[in-house]
């Protein structure tokens, strides 16, 4: 075996044009072989370096965030996460409203976006004729590339008036007995922010889901149809279980975008540092607080507290991704059995 590998390596070298006599013969070949090995080592080193630089960058960001927020961490300790007072005048800072807003608006977005995205993906892969699925698929990919400021302005100027005129009065009249839907129809608040986030992440989730639905082996589906299953049964019992880990991956991709989304949320969430059970009330999120207050924060403690908010967002995203990896690992194991 080793001889054979050697032969393979040397083969292309022998085919090279030979200019000097000394270029031939086993010694020269060995030298060339060694220089090829050196090239390999350089390449390997470079690849390692690039891969490591990603990790290094992440660690550096973490270190800088930690360093800059140290003053706030020292001053407020755990109280920073549990307090809901955000008072720049008295220099008392608590991140709870921002954390709550980030998590709840992203959760609303996922709850709305997931079924719609899976529906779009099923339609595109299982039902739509080719001349429909092509343009619709491209349109969805285009949606994903619209800058978030455009979504924010569209949300504020077009979407919010519709919400405050029609959607929110309807919710208040019919579901107002649930505290979640009490309050005034302002058109801006937690729910509108969740809606706009949902619209923003649908393209991501649906295009990834569509691609993984396409990877379901046709034989599996045809076997399903062969034993008399309906389209619904094939989708529910074969396509979705087969692609479960992929769907979770797509959701995480969407969630990652929703958690960190800034401008669109800032335009629509209402930017009020409070925690209200009602989804119609104005709220805030970590990224919205940062976008709003970073420019005018002069005092060291104020700035440090804002950086600590950034650190918390970093950790939340990290934890969400870690949970996702675990889920994917678990579900793909089960998926193998089915």
């Amino acid at each position: 075996m080793p001889e054979k590998t050697d032969e393979k390596v040397r083969m292309p070298l022998r085919d090279m044009p030979e200019k000097r006599a000394s270029d031939s013969g086993p010694v020269a070949a060995a030298r060339r072989y060694a220089s090829a090995r050196a090239g390999d080592a350089v390449f390997k080193g470079a690849a390692w370096f690039f891969a490591a630089s990603v990790i290094a960058l992440m660690l550096l960001i973490f270190a800088v965030l930690l360093k800059e927020s140290w003053l706030s961490i020292k001053t407020f300790g755990l109280g920073f996460i549990t307090s809901s007072t955000w008072d720049p005048v008295a220099l008392e800072f608590g991140a709870l409203p921002s954390i709550y807003g980030t998590l709840v608006s992203s959760a609303i977005a996922i709850i709305i976006a997931l079924p719609i995205s899976v529906g779009i993906a099923i339609f595109l892969t299982e039902m739509a004729p080719k001349r429909v699925s092509g343009p619709v698929g491209s349109a969805i990919e285009l949606l994903a590339s619209i800058p978030s400021i455009i979504y924010g302005m569209w949300g504020l100027f077009v979407f919010a008036p519709v919400l405050s005129e029609y959607v929110e009065p309807f919710l208040i009249d019919h579901l107002g007995f649930i505290p979640l839907f009490s309050g005034a129809p302002l058109g801006i608040g937690m729910l509108p922010a969740g809606f706009i986030l949902a619209i923003m992440i649908i393209p991501f989730i649906s295009s990834v889901t569509r691609d993984i639905f396409r990877m379901v082996p046709p034989m599996l589906k045809e076997s399903g149809y062969g034993v008399g299953a309906t389209k619904w049964e094939v989708i529910r019992k074969i396509v979705i279980p087969y692609t479960r880990s992929g769907i979770i991956g797509a959701v995480i991709l969407g969630l990652g975008r929703a958690l960190g989304e800034t401008m669109a949320v800032t335009f629509l969430i209402g930017n009020a540092q409070n925690i209200s059970i009602s989804l119609l009330d104005p709220a805030t999120s970590i990224s919205a607080t940062l976008a709003n207050e970073f420019t005018e924060a002069f005092e060291d403690l104020y700035l440090s507290s804002l950086v600590e908010l950034g650190l918390i967002l970093f950790l939340i995203t990290f934890v969400v991704l870690a949970i996702a990896k675990l889920l994917i690992a678990r579900f793909s194991y089960q998926g193998g059995k089915f």
């Binding site: 955000w86 720049p88 005048v89």
Partner: peptide, 29 residues
């Protein structure tokens, strides 16, 4: 209760970003 500063702990209301944001909200609501 509140005091003054470039940002304060607002007891009530919605926040608009920038003068144009506040003007927009008041115009619409």
């Amino acid at each position: 209760r509140v005091g003054f500063g470039t940002a304060v702990n607002w007891p009530a209301g919605v926040g608009g970003k920038g003068n144009e944001g506040v003007a927009m909200y008041v115009k619409r609501m």
